[in-house]
Simulated assay, not measured.
Amino acid sequence: SSFPPAAEQTIISALKGIHALMGSAVQPLLTSVGDAVEAIIITMHQEDFSGSLPSSGKPDVPCSLYMKELQGFIARVMSDYFKHFECVDFVFDNTEAIARRAIELFIRNASLIRPLGEGGKMRLAADFAQMELAVGPFCRRVSDLGKSYRMLRSFRPLLFQTSEHVASSPALGDIIPFSVVIQFLFTRAPSELKSPFQRAEWSHARFSQWLDDHPSEKDRLLLIRGALEAYVQSVRSREGKEFAPVYPIMVQLLQKATSALQ
C-alpha cells in the first residue's frame, strides 16, 4: 500500500464504520424479507399432501403453490430492491443468510407435514428441487450455502426410504439433526402418536417459534421424548397390545441422538 500506516488504519476503520452503517440501513428490509419468506413457507400446511399417487405414476403438478409464490417473491425482491445496490458482495453476504434461514424453515416445515401420502411425497420431493431454484437469486451459488445446502440435498431422498433406512442414513446427526429426522418419522405413525406440537396443541407457527427459541438439540429431543412417552401411556390406557411399527425406530433414534450429546 502507498499510504502511510496511520492513514491506512484511518481508512480501514472508516470503511468498517461505513460497512456497519450500510448494514443498519438495509436491516429493516432484510428483516421484512425474511419474515415474508417465513410466512410463505408456513403456508405449505394449508396444502394437501395426503394424496396417493395418480394412476400415471407422475405427480399432477411440478411443485406446490406456496413454492411458486416463494420463487416469485424472491425473484421480485431481488429485482425490485437488491439489484439496485452496487455493492454486490455486501448484498449477497446478507441475502445468503436469508437463503440459509429459508432452507432451514423449509425443511423444518416439510418434516412436520401430516398426513403425507405417496402423491404428497412426490410433490414434496419436487418442492425440494424447486427450493434450490427459489433461493438461487439470493446466492452467488446455491452450493455456497454450505451445511444448509447439504441438508436440503440429503433430506430429499429420505422421503422415499423406509423408516429403517432413514434411521441408518449417514446424513443423520452430521448434516441433518436427529430431532428433524425423528420429527419427520411422526408422519409415518398413526394419528394416536401425536407430533410434539400436536400434543402441546400448538399451531405450526407457534412450534416454529418454539424451535427458534430453543436451538439446543437437547431441548428439542426432550420435547420429542415427551410426545413418545405420551403415546406409550395412550396405548397402555386403552390396553393396546402393540405399538406402531415406526415407534421402536423412533425410540432407537432418540437414544442414539441422546448418547451423541453426551
Score class of each variant (00 low, 15 high):
residue 24 S to W: 08
residue 20 A to Y: 10
residue 208 S to I: 05
residue 64 S to N: 02
residue 93 D to A: 08
residue 202 W to R: 11
residue 198 Q to F: 07
residue 220 R to P: 09
residue 142 V to R: 04
residue 190 P to M: 12
residue 234 S to I: 00
residue 250 M to Y: 08
residue 207 F to W: 14
residue 83 K to Y: 11
residue 82 F to L: 07
residue 102 A to F: 02
residue 37 V to H: 07
residue 109 N to C: 02
residue 32 S to I: 12
residue 177 P to H: 02
residue 109 N to I: 00
residue 51 G to W: 02
residue 195 S to Y: 10
residue 233 Q to N: 10
residue 112 L to P: 01
residue 229 E to H: 05
residue 148 S to R: 03
residue 181 V to N: 10
residue 203 S to M: 00
residue 7 A to D: 10
residue 48 D to S: 15
residue 136 G to D: 04
residue 113 I to Q: 05
residue 201 E to K: 15
residue 90 F to G: 07
residue 208 S to P: 07
residue 68 K to T: 09
residue 137 P to M: 07
residue 145 L to K: 04
residue 100 R to F: 00
residue 22 M to W: 05
residue 146 G to M: 01
residue 243 F to A: 07
residue 58 K to P: 00
residue 130 Q to R: 10
residue 37 V to T: 14
residue 155 F to G: 04
residue 27 Q to T: 13
residue 99 A to I: 07
residue 92 F to Y: 15
residue 128 F to W: 04
residue 221 L to C: 05
residue 45 H to W: 02
residue 177 P to Y: 01
residue 92 F to K: 15
residue 256 K to F: 02
residue 112 L to S: 09
residue 236 R to C: 08
residue 179 S to Y: 09
residue 108 R to I: 02
residue 80 D to G: 03
residue 168 S to A: 13
residue 39 A to F: 01
residue 100 R to K: 15
residue 195 S to P: 06
residue 164 E to Y: 11
residue 18 I to W: 10
residue 130 Q to K: 10
residue 77 V to N: 01
residue 150 R to E: 14
residue 198 Q to N: 13
residue 214 H to A: 04
residue 192 E to Q: 12
residue 15 L to Q: 09
residue 5 P to H: 02
residue 233 Q to S: 11
residue 51 G to F: 12
residue 257 A to M: 06
residue 187 T to P: 00
residue 38 E to M: 00
residue 93 D to E: 13
residue 256 K to Y: 01
residue 171 A to D: 12
